[in-house]
Design a binder for these strands. Sequence first.
DNA 1: GGGTGTTTTACTCAGGTTGAGTAAATCAAC
DNA 2: GTTGATTTACTCAACCTGAGTAAAACACCC
Lengths: 308, 308
Amino acid sequence: MTRGRPVKVRLNAVILAVRDERPLLLTVAAGDGAVDALPAGVLDADGDRTLELALRRLVREQAGLELGYVEQLYTFGDRGRDPRERVLSVAYLALVGEGCAAPAAAGARGAAWRDGYALFPWEDWREARPAALDRVIGPALRDWASSVAERQERVAINFGLGGSRWDPTRVLERYELLYELGLVAERARDRQERSGTALGQAMALDHRRMVATALGRIRGKLSYRPVVFELLPEAFTLSRLQRVVEALAGMRLHTPNFRRLIERGGLVERTGAMATHTGGRPAELYGFRREVLRERPAPGVGLPRSAP
Amino acid sequence: MTRGRPVKVRLNAVILAVRDERPLLLTVAAGDGAVDALPAGVLDADGDRTLELALRRLVREQAGLELGYVEQLYTFGDRGRDPRERVLSVAYLALVGEGCAAPAAAGARGAAWRDGYALFPWEDWREARPAALDRVIGPALRDWASSVAERQERVAINFGLGGSRWDPTRVLERYELLYELGLVAERARDRQERSGTALGQAMALDHRRMVATALGRIRGKLSYRPVVFELLPEAFTLSRLQRVVEALAGMRLHTPNFRRLIERGGLVERTGAMATHTGGRPAELYGFRREVLRERPAPGVGLPRSAP
DNA sequence: GGGTGTTTTACTCAGGTTGAGTAAATCAAC
DNA sequence: GTTGATTTACTCAACCTGAGTAAAACACCC
């Protein structure tokens, strides 16, 4: 068995919240200060019983935040991820409710909540088809793929261009394609070239890739696991629920159908209370209905399959 | 930042194939020889450019097998996984076609193909509802969960007992529950107790947990990614395809509906050739239709939602 | 050579789900 | 009281799904 020199092991946290209809990402100041980084640290081989507990400890220490929902995302280990040394990074996805996402919690070590779509402007289709897609990305992709069938297929599948549909879950594939094309700042930085196009806000090392993995994962999971409720308070209105789903999915949903899916699907139950609201008819407050886990194998909010 | 002593990093491979309607798992002899282990090794920090390439190299060296489809499964890092030292293990899932799964390929270091359902007898519902469920597992679960609502819910969700349905993808959750209940041999071994009930074939360390993760993952992926075709030759009959899906899913499928799904879904295309067959009408040979990736966001074979 | 068995293939049909649209109910604000 | 915004209720066609029936085409056996 080959015995190479030992590699370092780090843990990274992609911590998401949704506030004011915007997905937020918890960041800390990177070493050089120029860009943001994800909260990270090393496993205490003696102290930490599990990786997940280690992650919770790290986030507590670095951002003073107690995590709720946590799931392992992916382990990154390519050579050159960190120019200084070979590091294995186990990335985790964490979701925190609106209460915990208060700016107050972000204080230590330059922790701050950043707008997730500032990192991926091309992923937010709620207002309109993102401008960058037609202005920059589309032409660059067409140029790159011209007369190479394999590339054309990859572009079509991931960016929904050649008759294919836009798949909200392919966040990572899209980011990686843009990286290859040199449209994000990290590419030039990693190759020590002069930077050209720099779509979206860059992050330290490969942290933006981790966030892309996280966003893709949670978008996929929306349809078959009741993860949205981790981001909401105990009681919420259906429209608030819809706004949070839309913020994550990056697309608008048909309200009557959304309500039907949620109510008939048995995902929520009425609390009886009403929400006094600003403008419009008052809405009833609902709560997550836990029994749905027993009833349905894949309870989720189901994004539409067809293009909007 | 806390600096613990460095942890070891290992890579593990769960290599699956399907032959004679049985899912097969590639194992090697464990150190003590009593049980099987997964092919494993350490990352060469200087030589291996990526984790995936490292895994391919390890499997090539240890079992003389060139892997096709490979995906990262999960990273295991709990304390006590390996009684000797703290190890971080990055597990991968690999699929090989029937050709590569020949016993000839298994030679070095005691490599052998094992029946996957020998490890998880309760997961194979093709012939009948597995006997172990009613004979051993059911009573033990009922006993354990009696008058504890939270446990009852967990049992219902994962084993489909209290009105819930059997979800083929919850392989890991079921294995972990059986571990907690002391129904698998690894539990007693890890706690250095005298072993009691020992359902299914045990493996070294937490390798059976890794296989459970893999089986659950591929069962889930069947419905939204065309992974089955990695296990089949270029040309195959629809019934052969169905048999492979059934072997993985551990359940029988309704043939006319399965064919409709596959053909109308555009997952395959006719080759024109026919299969001379033993007994019955000759079947047409089909091939995987790659264009489906462009057309549909989640092309898969879709297991039924309802109980059979 | 004809029946028998087995597998492939084709078709039907009811029920549910999904995407899309229309419209009434209810409150805040002006 | 009117206006505006939002919540809630209902409709309808298209599609998908689960389940069943049956014909077509070969191998095998007598």
